[in-house]
């Protein structure tokens, strides 16, 4: 089991880099995970990351990208609820990459 360290705190990740326990997540962990992908998190990134954590808390799953896009559009407006915007923020895929930063498991249906 691999480990990610942020501020001296070690958290376990699986072989694909997803946290094994979403309760170990904090914003510092997210920054370290983003740093591994050479990405600096801006307010726009945080908005999506926090949205994902709320979604998981409510539904107990990480949404598929199509569902995430639609839900973001509903909550944050159509200028954000589209693939172009989300892929610009998370080039490795808004569902896969953003979920990883948010400490969520890999989205169901994401093959």
């Amino acid at each position: 089991m691999a480990v990610v360290t942020a501020n001296g705190k070690d958290v376990e990740v699986d072989e694909e880099g997803y946290l094994t326990d979403l309760n170990t997540w904090d914003e510092d962990i997210a920054k370290v995970l983003a740093d591994q992908d050479k990405l600096e998190l801006t307010e726009s990134h945080w908005e999506v990351i926090h949205f994902l954590r709320e979604y998981y808390n409510e539904y107990q799953i990480a949404p598929a990208v199509r569902v995430l896009t639609k839900a973001i559009g509903k909550k944050l407006g159509p200028e954000k609820g589209n693939s172009k915007y989300l892929y610009e923020l998370f080039p490795y895929g808004p569902a896969k990459q953003a979920c990883r930063f948010a400490g969520l498991p890999k989205p169901t249906g994401c093959i």
């Binding site: 409510e58 539904y59 107990q60 799953i61 949404p63 598929a64 569902v67 639609k70 839900a71």
Partner: peptide, 14 residues
């Protein structure tokens, strides 16, 4: 274990 009854509420979004 995970309370997956909450997940049925996500189905509408799918």
């Amino acid at each position: 274990v995970k309370d997956f009854s909450k997940t049925y509420r996500a189905l509408e979004g799918y």
